[in-house]
Computed example of a mutant assay.
Amino acid sequence: MIMTTWFITGASDGIGRQVTERLLARGDRVAATARRPHRLDDLAAAFPGLLWTAALDVSDPAAIRTVVDRAFAELTTIDVIFSNAGRAAFGAAEELTDATVADQIAVNMTGPIHLVRAVLPHLRAQGGGRIIQNSSMGAQISSPGGSLYHAAKWGLEGFLESVIGEVAPFGIGVTMVEPGTVRTGFGAAMTIAPGLDAYAGTPVGQIRRSIEGSGGNLTGAAPGDPARVAAAIIDAASATPAPRRLVLGSDAYQAVHTALTTRLTELRAGEHLAATTDFPS
């Protein structure tokens, strides 16, 4: 097997950690970034010479450019960019604070956008590469209380849909990964907005009580196996052509299928009306 080099954000936890561990175990190099890179010290000791680390908060565009430029300068070639960092927030739209709104957009949408913009000149210069964005089934569906998380994921995928066509001539492939619920610590790190009494009897209130009743263990019974999710992501990096989307998990497949089918039915119902707004033939 030919050794590849990956650049990973959010590498210290969850799916990012699983992908990092698997790559190192098979002899690949990993440029692993995280807000707390010391949490990767055990891997650096276990795999000397294969792990490059740096502190990175993806909500800081200047830091993204600096770390990306340094990684390419020191490692020369990076084959795969795995944009994985992210976090969730829960609350009705009017319950969310301004700070939470800004954080969700910065971490889940504009941060990954800035990462893609930072790596593209390097990937073009080296003659190609692969960008894998860890998105979510939440980029295709929505649920009450997740408005900003969904907004960021939907927006990010819209950006990538356009970028796919822009960079294909340079040998750069892009894949959006849409996992369902996976047994990681992702849910435990969720920001939960203070509730308004007006929403107590609504779907938002019902979901809030479910979250509070879980004691922070939101993904303990999730069907998704993080090790298998990581393996599927790694395999996708060598698939030709690059899969546009990778839906992972039976729950994700069912939810996305239902959402797309419903939207198509609604679209077809409006076909006649759409035609009535054209100039007369």
Rank of each mutant, 00 (worst) to 15 (best):
I2Y: 01
M3S: 14
G10W: 05
A11G: 07
R17A: 10
Q18F: 00
V19P: 11
V19W: 07
L23V: 10
G27P: 02
G27H: 07
R36Q: 14
R36P: 02
P37S: 06
P37R: 05
P37H: 04
D42G: 10
D42L: 01
L43T: 03
A46C: 04
T53R: 13
A54V: 08
A55Y: 04
L56Q: 10
A62D: 15
R65V: 12
V68Q: 13
L75A: 12
I78M: 14
D79V: 05
A89D: 15
A89T: 15
E95Q: 11
E95V: 11
L96N: 15
T97W: 03
T100V: 15
I105T: 12
T110A: 03
T110P: 13
L115T: 14
V119W: 08
V119A: 08
L123W: 07
L123E: 15
R124P: 10
Q126K: 01
G127Q: 09
I131T: 03
I132E: 02
Q133Y: 01
S136H: 02
M137H: 03
G138K: 00
Q140H: 10
Q140E: 14
I141A: 04
I141C: 08
G145H: 07
S147F: 00
L156M: 12
G158I: 03
E161N: 11
I164M: 13
E166V: 06
P169C: 08
G171N: 11
G171Q: 10
V174W: 11
V174S: 09
T175N: 08
V177H: 09
V177T: 14
G180R: 08
T184P: 12
F186D: 11
G187Y: 06
G187L: 10
M190I: 13
A200E: 15
G205H: 03
G205A: 07
I207H: 09
R208G: 09
I211C: 05
E212H: 01
E212F: 01
G213E: 10
L218S: 04
L218H: 10
A221E: 14
G224L: 04
V229Y: 00
A231V: 02
I233M: 10
A239S: 02
T240V: 10
T240W: 00
P241I: 03
V247R: 06
D251M: 01
Y253T: 09
Y253K: 01
A255F: 00
V256D: 06
A259S: 12
T262R: 04
T262Q: 08
R263W: 01
L264P: 01
L264F: 01
L264G: 00
E266I: 00
F279W: 04
F279T: 04
